[in-house]
């Protein structure tokens, strides 16, 4: 790691005054003075240190957000919505009784991520803003499209862990499994701008596919801080489930993960379904076909199977990742049945 100056921000105002750059913009500007002079905000620091150790990022200054108490809280809002501070760790998410009771798929997704060591440090904000794990993107030897180069090496190369949907010039998958669950719950992110202006954006709109921007995975603006994730109050009859499948069960990235949120009526019919696929596309992939296949239906093996097939319709796998299609079909079906309590 190259040297940098270090500041610990005591409060949000101080962090905003630091005038931070986004990691994506800094990497896109490298090499050059804009990258060398960049001020980067640090949450848990897991991805930040990884990028720096790989020689992909060398900021001039790091501003630590760990000392800002308001970013580390989980609080129920009037009306039942839940506000999760950006500095809440994955371990806290996985263990929080309220999240486990109301947003089970999120607790499952967070608890299944990485290792206990990482979950104790990695934060929800950092998890959502981490950069992709694509080995070409993470390699200083490959000047890939996402880093400003001319090509996506994955299309012609080793793409077994890459996207099966939405590879518009870049075949990354979004690295956050928490995001898979959050999109299924229609979560939003709260962003505070340099002048203190707050805006709330649906997470699904905040995360950007390569067709919108090839070099960044989200709409975070320079100087802006992701302060919280907002989960809407759970509607009656909502049940959720998250399933991940790695090649290994211990500390491995998923080859597929699926979050299902079902709103079941008293008659047992599904009023509304959220079905989201992670590790499938450059952003969490909302399987609208599956959602509409479930709407109005009673959940059973057959409906779950049809929805799973609908979820994978239109997949465009690459040379080495077509195996993900049947894996996803199995996971979607199982997660639907799991959410309905029929697993």
């Amino acid at each position: 790691m190259k040297g940098f100056a270090w500041t610990s921000a005591p409060d949000l105002a101080a962090a905003l005054r630091a005038g931070s750059a986004t990691v994506a913009a800094t990497m896109a500007a490298a090499p050059g003075p804009a990258a060398a002079n960049a001020v980067i905000l640090k949450a848990g620091g897991i991805d930040l240190l990884d990028l720096m150790k790989e020689g992909l990022l060398a900021p001039q200054r790091i501003v630590n957000l760990r000392g800002i108490p308001e970013l580390g809280r989980i609080a129920e809002e009037p009306g039942g919505a839940l506000r999760i501070g950006a500095m809440v760790t994955l371990a806290q998410l996985a263990g929080d009784p309220l999240i486990r009771a109301r947003y089970g798929a999120l607790a499952q997704a967070a608890g299944g991520s990485a290792s206990p060591q990482i979950r104790h440090v990695a934060t929800l904000g950092g998890n959502l803003l981490q950069r992709p794990r694509c080995w070409y993107f993470r390699s200083i030897h490959h000047d890939c499209a996402r880093k400003g180069g001319r090509q996506c090496f994955a299309f012609m190369g080793e793409n077994q862990y890459h996207a099966i949907f939405g590879q518009y010039g870049c075949a990354i998958v979004h690295p956050s499994t928490a995001a898979t669950a959050l999109v299924a719950f229609d979560a939003s992110v709260e962003l505070v701008g340099a002048r203190g202006a707050r805006r709330t954006v649906a997470l699904e709109n905040f995360l950007l596919g390569p067709e919108v921007d090839l070099q960044r995975e989200n709409a975070l603006a320079p100087g802006e801080i992701l302060t919280a994730v907002l989960l809407p109050a759970p509607k009656p009859g909502v049940r959720s489930f998250h399933l991940r499948q790695g090649e290994l069960d211990s500390f491995d990235w998923p080859i597929a993960d699926v979050a299902v949120v079902l709103e079941l009526g008293r008659d047992g019919a599904c009023r509304r379904a959220g079905v989201v696929l992670g590790a499938a596309a450059p952003v969490p992939y909302r399987a609208r076909g599956a959602e509409s296949a479930l709407a109005g239906q009673r959940i059973a093996e057959g409906t779950a199977r049809s929805a799973a097939i609908a979820a994978l319709a239109g997949a465009t796998p690459l040379a080495k990742n077509a195996y993900k299609v049947p894996v996803f079909e199995a996971l979607v079906r199982r997660a639907i049945l799991g959410a309905a309590g029929q697993a």
Binding site: R133, W135, Y136, S139, H141, H142, F153, M156, G157, E158, Y161, E247, L248, D249, S250, F251, D252, W253
Partner: peptide
């Protein structure tokens, strides 16, 4: 048998998983 494989990028000649993140080795749960 189940997971170890050195992956070489055939076009650029670089080993893509020269790390313990993507060079997979069975661990406690396996």
């Amino acid at each position: 048998a189940l997971c170890e494989e050195r992956l070489l990028d055939r076009r650029t000649g670089h080993v893509l998983n020269a790390d313990l993140e993507h060079y997979k080795i069975g661990r406690s749960r396996e």
